[in-house]
Nucleic acid binder design. Structure first.
Lengths: 165, 165
DNA sequence: TATTGTTATACTCTATAACTATA
DNA sequence: TATAGTTATAGAGTATAACAATA
């Protein structure tokens, strides 16, 4: 058995537990709103938001979507299938690479996103931002961004060794 | 249809997405470690940690456990059943309230916790704390603690109206 | 009558491995 | 040979509602 490494101190433990609890409670609240307002899971919302808000063209390849949403390949196939069945996205073979599949958000997908967003915003305002000042929010974003970048670069991600586009 | 509320600004969206992504990736990494080191899910680890680390006596009532871990009652019953089957906790009728059930961590439970903790710590150090200075960590804890308290007090919690002990 | 906890049940999500097709 | 994506399948987790027992 290896020697016990330096254990975490109280401040670190506090930050860790607070982070996980806040994110867990927030996700719970948000998921409820998404389910009621649009019958969407959080992951499905993430996929729609990525296509409808982040991506300028509204279309992305499966692999690139997976890199953002953290998934096994099969999990993404499953969710994309659900979204397609609901008419919120389409899946077509990629133009340049015959192996690839391009997922595109539909008008119905954009409409649902728009329908769901105001309530989503309200939940965030009440649950997350209410106790945070403007500067707090800025500080939080500035603290977490480097962590996110760090984690993205050392991916315990979806499946096997993956590669950026 | 109600008027669209003030949408979130870029800083708020950034904080929100960073929080969710960091927590999601961290949970993924941590869950993997817990599974390999002790065949535990994150929730099971939370329950053991609450009993073995937080609680001075190592015993708590089901309801109080649920209040901390965010669950449906039945979900907690399910998880407690798994832990009991594995010999990590015991469940006995509460002394004062015949309706209640007291969950207590066993020696085996404490041993497993001790076995799993060093690796857990390492994951946290590498994934979460590596890009954070000492002061960053303090700041993060101080930002998130009020949010956690706020969320706890307005519970979208487990099930029906619940009540503190 | 309200509360604690369990059970039954159904469903959603996720992961693994095997497979197809293209690069 | 490696990569993109799908399928089959199996397992874990979660939620709802009905229920029994105690307060």
């Amino acid at each position: 058995m290896p020697d016990t490494p330096e254990p975490l101190d109280a401040v670190q433990l506090g930050a860790y537990f607070a982070l996980m609890e806040v994110a867990g409670l927030l996700r719970h609240a948000v998921e409820q709103q998404l389910r009621e307002a649009g019958d969407l899971s959080y992951v499905q919302f993430q996929l729609l938001a990525r296509l409808g808000l982040d991506s300028p063209t509204g279309r992305e390849r499966m692999t690139d979507l997976a890199d953002g949403v953290v998934y096994s390949r099969s999990g993404l196939t499953y969710q994309a299938g659900l979204l397609e069945k609901a008419g919120l996205v389409t899946r077509t073979p990629s133009a340049d690479d015959e192996r690839g599949v391009t997922v595109a958000i539909t008008d119905a997908g954009r409409a649902l996103l728009a329908k769901v967003l105001p309530g989503h915003t309200e939940v965030l305002r009440h649950q997350l931002f209410a106790p945070l000042s403007r500067r707090d929010t800025e500080a939080l974003a500035e603290l977490l961004s480097p962590v996110r970048d760090h984690m993205r670069s050392a991916p315990p991600r979806s499946a096997a060794p993956r590669r950026r586009r």
